[in-house]
Design a protein around this nucleic acid. Structure first.
Lengths: 121, 121
DNA sequence: CTGTATCCGATAAGATACTG
DNA sequence: CAGTATCTTATCGGATACAG
């Protein structure tokens, strides 16, 4: 739970109210989140498949990131398979796809313009 | 100092090596950083002017963000005025300007596509 | 298979006091 | 004016154990 009394909390709230960009960046800055988005886009639509693809991610973090992405309507969660063991499939929404394209642009920018050591994107 | 032994550290390093996008987002996620960039773009080119514009920012955070922006060649720092009291002026680099334009695009996206409460950007 | 609950270490933000 | 140094607190990531 957040301590509402702190300046820390108030400043973040102030920034997010001032501009939703801060809210979006705060979401994107959660570790693994963009990787989960990209991995779903590439066809990894199950929990176990994502966990295998993002080899160092832990259960609780993956679950949390999927929940966040769903809450912000960037992915859909389909658990209507009525199978045992449980089966759930994830997919990008149109907004999720647009965000992914936007992140591609940012990735190109970071590769070509920014002063970071080179890496394959 | 960072503890190199932690999984926490290794995972972040893994992600940043995998794609510089993670490095860029990690930078942008530092609180106030984008606001400082925008404020400089709007003409606030002195420490005191920035501090007044971003009314809740503290000295040490502003100093740190300016240092980060300079290190990544997003702004320039000019202290060649030989005046007392000290005088320093900041300005965007071409890369800084491009980043600002990219962030404008992201801001529009967050306003029109994302599921956040509305705010003026 | 797809998660949840609890705990702990690591990192980030901010308050305060001080300096050339 | 333009910062720096030190300390405290808040937030985040991850390990482990467990559940429907």
């Amino acid at each position: 739970m957040r301590k509402v009394s702190s300046t820390n909390y108030h400043n973040q709230a102030y920034l997010e109210e001032k501009c939703t960009l801060n809210e979006l960046i705060h979401l994107l800055s959660k570790r693994w989140l963009t990787e989960v988005l990209f991995s779903i886009e590439e066809g990894n639509n199950r929990f176990s498949s994502l966990k295998e693809d993002l080899k160092y991610i832990s259960d609780n973090i993956l679950a949390d990131r999927l929940k966040l992405l769903e809450q912000h309507k960037l992915i859909t969660r389909n658990d209507n398979f009525r199978e045992v063991p449980a089966r759930v499939e994830y997919a990008l929404t149109p907004t999720g796809l647009k965000l992914s394209e936007l992140l591609d642009v940012m990735c190109k920018f970071s590769e070509t313009e920014m002063d970071f050591p080179a890496a394959s994107c």
